[in-house]
């Protein structure tokens, strides 16, 4: 009867030995290759440092101007442009300018990295069934595993700092862009593809003249989601040494500073809204050809 009440688990010693074996071998691994990995990521680190410095050393009016310009270029909407500039100005007035620039730096670099890596992966997935069946479960794991769990090996390998923070953000933020690139390409009208074939398009020409352009609205929705997810990782990333709006939030949690937490939290929300509106309206403008007369 006991057999059914207690789960027949492996013995305590066996489990402990197992865990220890895995841990020590990973520690060995990280000792062995940690330095090499760091060297590998060194250019990335330099780039991040350079970009953050650039944002911080540029006079604030110019940054405001650039943000307004980007918002206008993306959305072509006065409301969104003015709203973005006002939100950024408020952030500055309430003393969060520097942290915001740091956050902007990591989110931009992370998004860039996700786009550069994620879109090609999505294209490969759309092209080969096998790639899709292998990569989809990996993406599922990346999206559902609690971030703290993969922070452990990342920190063990690379220690604390910008690069591990960036990796953690990317692991969390890359799945949507991969998925939506894959989906977007698969949803391209078969008739149009057949027409491209009939005019002698090579697979490569088909990819760049038909599949990617027609998948762009979906790819763009992926970029939008990736940005949002990168922003939502800001607080967790600050736990492993990434500067930015996450740091004061962490301090506020441990010291119960309500207003500090709220203000920095709201700044993150403001950034999220700006990114979201601008990238969404830009995505919609990409599809203008789908509409009739009178639209741009």
């Amino acid at each position: 009867m006991d057999f059914f009440l207690e789960f027949p688990e492996l013995g305590r010693h066996t489990l402990a030995a197992m865990r220890k074996a895995i841990d020590t071998s990973f520690i060995h691994f990280s000792r062995e290759y940690g330095a090499a990995l760091e060297a590998f990521f060194y250019p990335l680190l330099q780039f991040m440092i350079w970009f953050e410095k650039l944002l911080l050393s540029t006079p604030w009016p110019i940054i405001l101007l650039i943000i307004g310009g980007l918002a206008w270029f993306g959305s072509r909407s006065v409301k969104i442009t003015v709203g973005s500039v006002i939100a950024m100005a408020l952030i500055g007035i309430f003393g969060m300018w520097e942290d915001t620039m740091a956050t902007l730096a990591i989110v931009s670099v992370a998004t860039l990295l996700c786009v550069v890596i994620g879109i090609p992966i999505g294209i490969v997935m759309a092209r080969f069934e096998r790639a899709q069946s292998v990569i989809t479960p990996i993406l599922d794991v990346m999206q559902t595993i609690p971030s703290f769990v993969y922070l452990i090996p990342v920190v063990m390998l690379l220690g604390i700092g910008k690069v591990p923070g960036l990796l953690a953000v990317c692991i969390y933020a890359i799945p949507p862009i991969v998925r939506l690139t894959n989906l977007g390409i698969r949803l391209v009208d078969r008739d149009v593809l057949e027409a491209a074939d009939a005019f002698g398009a090579s697979p490569r020409q088909k990819l760049f003249s038909v599949q990617v352009p027609l998948a762009l609205p979906n790819i763009f929705a992926g970029v939008n989601q990736t940005i949002m997810m990168a922003l939502s990782m800001v607080v967790i990333a600050s736990m492993i040494g990434v500067r930015g709006l996450g740091v004061p939030v962490l301090k506020a949690i441990s010291n119960q500073y309500l207003s500090l937490g709220l203000m920095n939290g709201l700044a993150i929300v403001a950034l999220a809204i700006i990114f979201d509106r601008v990238s969404q309206t830009y995505g919609q403008r990409l599809q203008a050809y789908r509409k009739g007369f009178g639209d741009e």
Binding site: D191, V192, E194, A196, A198, F199, G200, A201, V210, L214
Partner: peptide
Amino acid sequence: RDLRRFKTSMVFQKFALLPHRTVIENVAY
């Protein structure tokens, strides 16, 4: 591919135009 580029061309029941390209870009495809 050369056969399809130079010797044959095709017109489709559902037109199968490239929706993201203008008329002239379609004709030049």
